[in-house]
């Protein structure tokens, strides 16, 4: 049984859908269909770094690597206007998250996971915005799902400070995609394994 939020990832309505937007949807849906089984070697490595808070923080670190790299690659596409401004600011913010989580993993006695190489099916501003929105929405659900499992108060506060920024980024990108910034009264949560499965199609072998 596919969890509800994951199914929603594959069901996002796209205005004037481009081929790459379609690919994005397919990739996310595929990740969802395979569920836990689609989690590759990288994801397992993320889980093998010590357990407890370090494991959760490493999971967060992996997502932030992914997002930071997404904005970096997006900016190489030659984004323009407001979207370019958002991408530039968000890239910096994700880099902040990477730094914060790297320190937090070490602080929790773990070893930070190495940064993987990512590849995103984006080819223009439209596909960038659509995928960005989906990635940030997923980041929110993943942090909201994993955060409450943290034992350390400092780690929880750090995760909270990060997830609020993720939610703001998601809302801004949703507006850029002509979507509702806050689609529901409550943000859903997803399990770490489901978030990793959704991220897997973007990790290069």
């Amino acid at each position: 049984m596919t969890p509800q939020p994951i199914r929603r990832l594959g069901a996002i309505e796209v205005h004037g859908m481009t081929r790459s937007a379609f690919l994005v949807r397919s990739a996310l849906t595929a990740g969802a269909l395979y569920g836990g089984h689609a989690v590759g070697p990288f994801a397992r490595r993320a889980f093998a770094q010590g357990g407890g808070d370090a494991e959760i923080l490493n999971f967060g670190l992996m997502l932030q690597y992914l997002e930071a790299d997404f904005y970096r690659q997006g900016l190489e596409l030659g984004l323009t206007g407001q979207v370019r401004t958002l991408a530039t600011d968000f890239r910096e913010q994700e880099q902040d998250h990477v730094t914060t989580l790297t320190e937090a993993v070490t602080g929790a006695g773990g070893r930070p996971v190495p940064k993987p190489r990512f590849e995103f099916p984006i080819e223009d501003q439209g596909s960038f915005v659509t995928l960005g929105m989906t990635l940030e929405d997923t980041g929110v659900m993943a942090f909201n799902g994993a955060g409450p499992k943290l034992k350390s108060e400092a780690a929880l506060l750090g995760a909270g400070r990060i997830v609020q920024v993720e939610a703001r980024q998601a809302a801004a990108l949703r507006l850029a995609a002509m979507e509702k910034p806050a689609p529901d009264a409550f943000d859903e949560t997803i399990e770490m394994k489901d978030a990793l499965a959704a991220a897997k199609p973007f990790i290069e072998k």
Binding site: L86, D89, F90, Q93, V140, N144, G147, P148, G160, V163, Q164, V165, E166, A167, R168, Q169, A170, A171, A172, R174, L175, P181, A182, D184, A185, F186, D187, E188, T189
Partner: peptide, 25 residues
């Protein structure tokens, strides 16, 4: 529950910041 509301408040805040020419973050 609190976190799930927290991020929705954040989404509202970001949208309203944009509507008033402020930074979403």
């Amino acid at each position: 529950t609190a976190l799930s509301i927290h991020t929705v408040e954040a989404r509202h805040a970001a949208a309203l910041n944009i509507a008033t020419d402020q930074e979403p973050v």
